[in-house]
Simulated scan of single mutants.
Amino acid sequence: MSKYTTGELAKLCGVTVRTVQYYDTRGILIPSELSEGGRRLYSDDDLKCMKIICFLRELDLPINAISQILNEEHPEKVISLLIEHQEKSLSDEISDKQEKLEKLRELKNGLKSHESFSLESIGDIAVIMEGKKKLKRMRWMMILTGIPVTALQCFSIIFWIVKGIWWPFVLWVLVAIPWGIIVSRYYFRQVKYICPECHELFKPTLKEAFWANHTPTTRKLTCTACGHRGFCVEVWGGDGK
């Protein structure tokens, strides 16, 4: 079994010699034995215990609390819970940092698409980024709800051509029209548009938005704030207010 001096133990655990000596005087980590010359000698078990103490100190636990935990009948259970909690905390922190990194990269890429940018253009990009996931989720929901309607349309047309029976197509029309109205109203309640001229967020009327020329991310509208007519960027509009 290995034996470690105070200096060796301190080096292995990344602390100072004075720290190891302090834990000894507090009775938290007493050396397994003393050499003939009176030097403290620590075992492998002491090394493991020291690493646990260092971990608990990183969690900002006071010395008295650490001493009490180590004196418990089953200290490993408490330490195991602390480790699990710290693992989850670090995992959440990593996820948060990763999300921020993705936002920075999106902002960086967004700025590259602007030959000249201002505070207003940066603000526009930030608004787009903020609701990007929500918009994507809503569009996917619309696609999924539209699959049965599309399937019914295909079935009814084939049935009409092959069998000469037209009533399934009428049934599809009776389903498709209300579905289209409900989905369109819901969609346009959830989105807003950024005017490229005044950079204001605005909501067009349902009629204008529905019939406007559009791309997947823009729609040709008249800004209600400045009156400019052109392609405006579609963004998430929250609860539709």
Rank of each mutant, 00 (worst) to 15 (best):
Q86H: 11
K103V: 02
I147C: 06
H228S: 07
S156H: 03
A176V: 01
D124G: 08
I30P: 06
H214W: 07
R105F: 05
S2D: 08
I158Q: 03
L41H: 11
S121T: 15
V173R: 01
V175Q: 05
S2H: 06
I53P: 07
L41K: 08
S121Q: 09
I28G: 07
V233T: 13
V78I: 13
T19A: 15
I83A: 10
L104I: 13
K133Q: 15
G123R: 08
R57E: 03
G131H: 00
I161D: 03
Y22N: 15
L9D: 12
E197A: 08
F231K: 09
L12S: 10
V191W: 00
L206F: 15
K88I: 02
L174R: 04
Y23C: 08
P168V: 06
R185Y: 07
K134E: 15
V170R: 00
D124P: 00
W172P: 01
R189Q: 08
T217S: 13
V191M: 02
K192Q: 10
L107V: 10
I69M: 07
D44Q: 08
I94M: 02
K163N: 13
P31N: 02
S116L: 14
G146A: 15
N64R: 12
S116I: 11
K48Y: 13
W172S: 11
I128Y: 09
I158F: 08
Y23P: 09
I52Q: 11
V20D: 06
D45C: 06
G7C: 09
Q68E: 15
D24T: 05
C49D: 01
E197Y: 00
E76H: 14
G237W: 02
C223W: 06
D46P: 05
T222D: 01
H214D: 08
W167F: 15
I122T: 10
G123F: 04
M138Y: 07
D92N: 14
V162D: 05
K3A: 11
R18W: 01
K241A: 04
E200L: 05
T217I: 13
F188G: 03
V191L: 12
D44C: 04
I79H: 10
I194C: 13
P148H: 13
K11T: 10
T145K: 02
E33N: 10
R139E: 08
G131E: 02
H214E: 12
P62W: 02
A65K: 15
N109E: 14
M1Q: 03
P168T: 01
G237L: 03
F210T: 11
V235K: 01
T5F: 00
L174E: 05
V233Y: 06
W179A: 14
M141A: 11
K51C: 05
F188D: 07
D239I: 11
C195H: 03
K192L: 06
I194N: 14
I181K: 05
Q21C: 13
R219V: 00
D124T: 07
C54R: 14
T222Q: 13
C232I: 00
